[in-house]
Design a protein around this nucleic acid. Structure first.
Lengths: 289, 289
DNA sequence: AGCGTATGCGTACAGCATAAACAATGAAAT
DNA sequence: ATTTCATTGTTTATGCTGTACGCATACGCT
């Protein structure tokens, strides 16, 4: 509970008593720096305090425990990624940009992927991100349940791909060898166990050099396929019945309310009301991107 | 290096000296049991030893360190999942079954997803799994680089989705509340910060009940889309040029060697030689599944 | 000036992985 | 049958970790 208040910056500073020597933000920032540089495992309360020039226990005046600090770190870096609905374009290009932005975030702060990911980050930045991506997805015209499923699909893919890529990179860094060298160093070992007859496809792919790519090449490949599949899914059921929830509704990209489809004309509406349509128009004029 | 020998069971038991009281397999099994029951964080050398009825340091006679033990645990449970090429059917249904089997594995042993995933598990079971999935994918006729990309895509999605689902479940278990109750308990807090006007889409989706599904519903949705995208990708370039590597080759599903396409007839061949074709036929007859 | 309060700090403790030295065991060599 | 010695099991010790507790200090308000 306390953690939420910290995340959302609700702690009203009492005007009695001694003044704090640091700010919460300072602490979080140093923790992030350590995690970025040396990895999540090396982030300890002692090391943070040491770098800040105070004792370990002083930190506990600002944060209930390490778990809450990790939450704060996550939400802090979530503030770096540009919001999906700030970019121009149709939903696909915006979603693509958003996914790439996430990918970039995970490259800069790999430790996020080592943390459990409970309800989307819970913090203000994480929530803003969540909202913006979902808002972009409303342009697909998909009903609520399917929309959330699509979000989950993209999120799962990006996180999974980033994790796999970073794990591979971490192994390289840890052993100090590139993937190629690593295989070569263990060549004599593989010759004993790894009889190509037993693993013909892997052996052949390895010989063809297909097992090693630049890290983001595979990501881009998969991302395109995922987006393709979403696009055809959307195209195949234009505002159609949602099989999972049984609703016919669509969400207004401006206010998020369900948009009723007029029974007379089959043409689906985008906004729930004329007011929302105009608000969206004005908002686009004000920020032409 | 020592770790690899352990993984592949290459330690020839010396006939001099005291007899070991346990087997490596016993140790690994108890470690897996602890991880399954209480989570990865509670797996400590002390606890394993305690459950086995020996001292902590005894374990280090069997395993160089905890890292190697974790590798052994991973490969041990990888042995549970049925091989992808053991099932009948075309590549898509086999790939689908394989993905679902992985999903099941992650459900039974969530701790795998908390571990770094370096080169596919490195162990015999992990390698057999790797080979079997890639072998199934050879039936697509895709050239090496694209084939590996497709594998990575499926793997990234399944792992990502499993992680997201399990993290959500973990939060539920930890707080002892379902997702619904959790939101309700913090309702008064959200009312202060979470003004629906600021997050209209999330608020609306929440009101529509679209944010909570049975865990595997979303997985199945995403899996279908991912497989769809792969299928159309395969259909759109039947044994065509691989844009990433510039090769025209295909892999023989039997021996894994590249299959040269006869320039005369445009029709692509499946196997690299008639011997391989017959071997595959006999193998299928022997194990009709 | 003095009170109340929040902060800063030192100590202490339980738990962790594991390095190093030492005791127990049991098969092979003599 | 006794010695030899590789191999296993145990004991002790080190340096990490997060954090509970108690106390001295500094600051705002009355």
């Amino acid at each position: 509970m306390r953690g939420l208040e910290l995340l959302w910056g609700l702690g009203e500073r009492p005007n009695r008593g001694r003044r704090p020597a640091f700010t919460l933000e300072q602490i979080v920032r140093t923790a992030v720096e350590i995690a970025d540089a040396q990895g999540l495992a090396t982030v300890s309360m002692r090391r943070i305090a040491e770098r800040l020039g105070c004792t370990t226990m002083s930190l506990y005046r600002y944060v209930p425990g390490k778990a809450e600090l990790l939450d704060l770190m996550t939400d802090a870096v979530m503030g770096e990624v540009p919001l999906a609905d700030a970019a121009p374009g149709d939903w696909r290009t915006r979603l693509e940009l958003s996914a790439r932005a996430d990918w970039g975030l995970y490259q800069r702060h790999p430790w996020i992927l080592r943390l459990p990911a409970g309800r989307p980050a819970l913090g203000p930045h994480g929530f803003a991100w969540y909202e913006s991506v979902l808002r972009v997805l409303t342009a697909t015209g998909l009903p609520p349940a399917a929309l959330v499923h699509v979000f989950d699909l993209v999120d799962a893919y990006v996180r999974g791909a980033a994790r796999d890529a970073l794990d591979a990179a971490a192994v390289e860094r840890h052993s100090g060898l590139t993937d190629e060298q690593w295989w070569a160093a263990r060549a004599h070992f593989w010759d004993a166990v790894f009889v190509p007859a037993r693993y013909p496809v892997v052996a052949s792919l390895r010989a063809a050099g297909a097992l090693h790519h630049p890290r983001d090449r595979g990501f881009e490949f998969g991302l395109r396929l995922v987006l393709d599949s979403i696009e055809t899914f959307v195209r195949n059921q234009p505002n159609a019945r949602d099989e999972t929830s049984g609703r016919y509704e669509t969400l207004c990209p401006q206010c998020g309310n369900p948009v009723s489809r007029p029974a007379s004309t089959g043409r689906p509406r985008t906004f729930c009301s004329d007011a929302c349509r105009q608000r969206a128009y004005r908002a686009r004029r004000a920020r032409p991107a």
